[in-house]
């Protein structure tokens, strides 16, 4: 069961007494094989949970780094079907690392929600984060996902107050993703104080683990936020390394994969909860 893998991972990390490192990369960026190679190397490099972006033509919540990643992946012919295939390929070697797909609703809606959920479960996907589905639209995906045991990760943000949080948590599962800034991915750096206050508020209302993401770029950031959250998400900083290691024709530098994984390793080592 998909949700089990997420729950088992957080239970194991609790035993170890540390927070999870969650990495974000876009499926098919810059090409299928390179992206799959990175994916396969992530757990050993220190990723506890993998967020895999489903590329979309109009990524409204993303900053320049992830926009560019989406474009590279789409140019390389990435589709929802191939994204699921990538998860299937990953699962032949790793059955324990949770995979969360992150993206926008339209490609799933066009695939067909029920078909998508069935195919994603079969491929080994554990949870979904769909940025443009607030709780007001839970009927679209969150409720059908709940029925089949797929994790549906909801977002809380700096604009979320206590009343609204209650509403968000109603159909949330897996963990809660706290968006640390009001803004798009990979831009402003969050301040620890307000994020801590928000997480305290969240913990008063739910026992779900809390992940923090948006704007977390460096090992120092990761370490700081790992003190207050159950998981820390790094996305744009990883994706930028991919962007910096492709040539003008969009071909990957042979060192690209190892450079990405080396960077992830510098983050992973430091995710320790005291």
């Amino acid at each position: 069961m998909a949700l089990d893998r997420i729950e088992q991972k957080f239970a194991a990390l609790k035993e170890e007494g540390r927070a999870a490192l969650v990495t974000f990369t876009t499926a098919g960026d810059p090409d299928y094989d390179t992206a799959l190679g990175i994916l396969r190397g992530l757990p050993a490099a220190g990723a506890d949970i993998i967020e895999l972006g489903m590329p979309f033509s109009d990524p409204m919540a993303d900053g320049p780094a992830i926009q560019a990643a989406s474009i590279r992946a789409l140019r390389g012919g990435m589709t929802v079907r191939r994204t699921l295939q990538m998860v299937r390929d990953f699962r032949t070697q790793d059955q324990t690392t949770p995979i969360i797909l992150m993206g926008y609703y339209n490609p799933l809606y066009i695939y067909g929600v029920d078909d998508f959920l069935a195919d994603a479960l079969e491929a080994g996907v554990d949870g979904l984060i769909i940025v443009d589905l607030p709780p007001e639209e839970d009927n679209e995906l969150a409720l059908p996902a709940k029925e089949v045991g797929m994790g549906c990760i909801h977002l809380a943000t700096p604009t979320t107050d206590e009343g609204r949080l209650n509403h968000i948590l109603k159909n949330a599962s897996g963990f809660l993703y706290y968006v640390s800034i009001a803004g798009i991915t990979g831009t402003a750096e969050p301040d620890l104080g307000p994020v801590k206050a928000a997480i305290d508020m969240i913990r008063r209302q739910t026992a779900l683990p809390v992940a923090v993401g948006f704007g977390i770029k460096s090992p120092e950031n990761v370490r700081a936020f790992a003190e207050i959250a159950d998981a820390v998400v790094v996305g744009s900083a990883i994706v930028n390394i991919i962007g910096d290691n492709i040539d003008q024709e969009g071909l990957a530098n042979p060192e690209l994969g190892s450079r990405v994984l080396d960077f992830v390793a510098t983050l992973g080592l430091r995710v320790n909860k005291i």
């Binding site: 409204m60 919540a61 609703y105 940025v131 443009d132 589905l133 607030p134 709780p135 007001e136 639209e137 909801h154 977002l155 809380a156 943000t157 700096p158 604009t159 979320t160 107050d161 609204r164 968000i168 968006v179 009001a182 803004g183």
Partner: peptide, 12 residues
């Protein structure tokens, strides 16, 4: 129709 926006915008 509907309200397919990110959570940050929903309160607004």
């Amino acid at each position: 129709g509907g309200r397919f926006v990110s959570e940050t915008l929903m309160p607004l």
